[in-house]
Structures are given as structure tokens and as C-alpha cells.
Simulated scan of single mutants.
Amino acid sequence: MNTVTTRAVEYPADALTMIGHLVLPAGTGRRPAVLIGPEGMGLSDVERGRAEALAELGYVALAFDLHGGRYLSNPEEMLARCMPLLADPDRMRGIGHAALDVLRAEPRVDPDRIAAIGYGTGGAIALELGRQGVDLRAIGTVNALTTGRPGEAARISCPVWAGVGSEDPIMPPAQRDAFIAEMQAAGVDWRLTVYGGALHGFHHPTVDHATPAGVGYHPRHAQRAWRDIVDLLTECLPVTA
């Protein structure tokens, strides 16, 4: 196992002081990099662990923050912050860009070889960076079949992979259809994987606070979705050094 280096990074975004989790792979040379967006509850050990797993594979990884260092375990508090955010593409892009600037400023990062992945709200932010025309090598999302402002998906210049649970009430078939129509009309290289029987948040291990209806962990599909994301990165952003 390679030795990775982790550190907390503070940076301003959305009128808050964000605290991201930056992980560097072994070695000294420049590497491709991955931005990782968390679920609406905020940055947790799940996303930190995924950043570390990607660093083991040779990527520089930054799991970014949504709520100024807080994890919103209360669903009502989380929705009160995230619903207005999800309705405001410019705010989402601001949060994404602030994290992207931190990642690009890291000397180990090859700034021309960056991908963005994300879960829920963090995945919506990754998609908005693509819709803004940010130069990314890949976008991967889980539970984030959000659609954007008309015509802007045509600015997405990289492959997009999205995963969703078949029984996700927050991303129902109508939302899937809208996302597919947007990607297809824009000429995006897109893929959608539907995981049979899975609910919203199926990738996220069970947490110790109240779980809202329609949300649940599915261990097998969680592993499959992670493999699908790694495969996307291997294809679009290979580690060559």
C-alpha cells in the first residue's frame, strides 16, 4: 500500500470558511486530480475515505466542504440549506470553483487533468461546473440527476457517468428522463447506471441519526458504484506516472 499524505485545507466559499480534505499520493511528481463533492449533509468520513482511496491509486484528491466545517445531521436543517443552493446554479458553481482553485493551486496537481465526482448535492455541483464549461476530463455523480439551465449542458466537454437507485424517490423516473433528455440534446457523452432495488443515498453507509424515508444503504450497489467511478477515472483520467 502506498503512503498518502492528508491535510485539512481552509478556504472561503459561499460566505463561509470551508474545510476540505486534501490527499496527496506517494511520490513527488505531478498527478491527475479529482474533486469530490459530498452529499447534502456535508463532508464526512465517507468522502474523506474515498479521497484517500483515490490517492492510493495515484490521484491527488480533494473532498470539498459544503457547510463551513459542519455536518448537518438534522434533515430539516440540511434541506433548509441545500434546497435554495440546488435552485441557484451560480451559488453551486461558486462553491465548486472555490474548491477547484484550491486543488489547482496544489503543486502536485496537473491542472490540465482534473475530474469531478460527487454525491447528491456535491454531484449537482460537479455537473454545474461542467455546464459552465470548466475543463474537466470526466464527471461522475451518484444520486444527482439534476438538470441545468436551458442549453448550458452543451458546454460539457467530457464524458458524464451518473448512477441512481431504481427506488430513489428523490430522483424518480421522471427526473431520470429529464436528465437523459438534457444530456442527449446537448450531445454529451453520457452514461446512466440504474442500480436495482436501491434507494436514495444507497452508497452512503448507515449513519447514527434519523434516516429520512426513501434513503437507505445498499452495500453491494455501493461497492459497484464505486467501481464504476474508478473505471470512469481509469478510462478518462489514467495515472501514467
Score class of each variant (00 low, 15 high):
Thr3Trp: 13
Ala8Tyr: 07
Ala8Thr: 12
Tyr11Val: 08
Ala15Val: 07
Thr17Phe: 11
Met18Trp: 01
Ile19Glu: 15
Ile19Thr: 14
Gly20Ile: 08
Gly20Leu: 11
Leu22Gly: 11
Leu24Ser: 13
Pro25Thr: 02
Ala26Gly: 11
Gly27Ile: 00
Arg30Ser: 05
Arg31His: 14
Ile36Arg: 02
Pro38Ala: 07
Glu39Val: 11
Gly42Val: 01
Gly42Leu: 05
Leu43Lys: 07
Leu43Ala: 07
Asp45Thr: 09
Val46Asn: 15
Val46Ser: 12
Arg48Leu: 01
Ala53Gly: 09
Ala53Ser: 12
Ala53Tyr: 08
Ala53Gln: 14
Glu56Ile: 00
Leu57Met: 10
Gly58Val: 02
Gly58Gln: 04
Tyr59Ser: 05
Tyr59Ala: 01
Val60Thr: 06
Val60Glu: 00
Ala61Leu: 05
Phe64Asp: 08
Asp65Glu: 09
Gly68Asn: 04
Gly69Gln: 08
Leu72Thr: 01
Met78Cys: 15
Met78Gly: 11
Leu79Met: 11
Leu79His: 08
Pro84Arg: 01
Asp88Asn: 08
Gly94Tyr: 01
Gly96Met: 04
Ala98Leu: 10
Ala99Met: 04
Leu100Ala: 09
Asp101Asn: 15
Val102Gln: 12
Leu103Phe: 12
Leu103Asp: 08
Arg104Ala: 12
Ala105Leu: 05
Glu106Gly: 12
Pro107Ser: 05
Pro107Asp: 06
Arg108Ala: 15
Asp110Val: 06
Asp110Asn: 09
Ile114Cys: 11
Ile117Ser: 01
Ile117Met: 04
Thr121Arg: 10
Gly122Lys: 02
Gly123Ala: 06
Gly123Asp: 10
Ile125Ala: 09
Ala126Leu: 03
Glu128Arg: 13
Gly130Tyr: 04
Gly130Phe: 10
Arg131Thr: 02
Gln132Leu: 15
Gly133Ile: 02
Asp135Ser: 12
Leu136Phe: 10
Gly140Phe: 11
Gly140Met: 03
Thr146Glu: 14
Thr147Tyr: 14
Arg149Lys: 12
Pro150Leu: 09
Pro150Tyr: 01
Ile156Glu: 13
Ile156His: 12
Ile156Asn: 12
Cys158Val: 04
Ala162Lys: 00
Gly165Gln: 06
Ser166Gly: 06
Asp168Met: 00
Asp168His: 03
Met171Arg: 03
Met171Cys: 13
Pro173Cys: 04
Ala174Asn: 02
Gln175Glu: 04
Arg176Lys: 03
Ala178Ile: 02
Met183Val: 08
Gln184Phe: 10
Ala185Tyr: 00
Gly187Met: 13
Asp189Gln: 14
Thr193Pro: 04
His200Asn: 07
His200Trp: 05
Gly201Ala: 13
Phe202Glu: 05
His203Lys: 00
Pro205Ala: 01
His209Ile: 02
His209Ser: 04
Thr211Asn: 10
Pro212Phe: 03
Ala213Val: 02
Gly214Thr: 07
Val215Glu: 07
His218Pro: 02
Pro219Met: 07
Pro219Asp: 11
Arg220Ser: 13
His221Lys: 03
His221Leu: 01
Ala222Tyr: 07
Gln223Met: 02
Arg224Tyr: 06
Arg224Gln: 15
Ile229Thr: 14
Val230His: 03
Val230Phe: 04
Val230Leu: 08
Asp231Ser: 10
Leu232Asp: 00
Glu235Met: 05
Leu237Arg: 08
